[in-house]
Design a protein around this nucleic acid. Structure first.
Length: 170
DNA sequence: GTACAGATTGAG
DNA sequence: TCAATCTGTACT
């Protein structure tokens, strides 16, 4: 497994595939955020915390970490490191490859999970072996196309609030 | 046990 | 600006 920030950038441009009962949805990843585990105050695993919700982050990279917030939204993350290192990449935005769909349907971490019907049944799903949710290679993304900014929605995280750990290509 | 805030969104 | 209302944390 590689550095979480590197993985966050590499995921940009790749294609997220979600297979449902009667159709297969594909979408390009255009926005991600890195969450750097025990040292990152914005991360659920800050300080080595391990709960029923975030325990998947402690598993080996390549799995899906799905959790529920605000009583109404699921968030979809990709676990990045080896077992025992709780780091992950939050997928914040995707664009449908099917141009007949509303391009805004996957812009926003709560909206993309709603569209792809991602819920807690996919928490811990192996994105390499899975037959219902996985990631394919997409178009090549040059480093010059990647924009970097502060993360969103974590004003409480003090010095980590302004870290440039959000990456996007739109 | 109770109280409250959060990696959000859409309506008012 | 606020409600939707689940999960985890800090209290009593």
């Amino acid at each position: 497994m590689r550095d979480t920030k590197t993985v966050a950038k590499e995921l940009l441009g790749k294609v997220l595939v979600r297979k449902l009962e009667n159709k297969t949805l594909k979408a390009k990843i255009v926005e991600t955020e890195a969450y750097l585990g025990v040292k990152d105050k914005a991360c659920h695993s800050f300080g080595g915390r391990k709960t029923e919700r975030n325990k998947v982050m402690y598993e080996i990279g390549g799995k899906a970490y799905v959790y529920f917030v605000y009583g109404m939204h699921y968030m979809f993350n990709v676990v990045t490191r080896e077992k025992g290192i709780p780091e992950a990449v939050l997928i914040r935005g995707i664009l449908p490859l099917d141009e007949s769909l509303d391009p805004k349907i996957g812009l926003g971490p709560g909206k993309l999970t709603k569209w792809l019907k991602i819920d807690l049944s996919l928490n811990g799903e192996d994105l390499v072996k899975s037959k219902v949710l996985w990631i394919e290679e997409g178009e090549k993304v040059f480093p010059s196309q990647i924009k970097i900014s502060k993360r969103v929605g974590i004003d409480y995280a003090q010095e980590w609030r302004d870290k440039p750990l959000r990456f996007y290509i739109y």
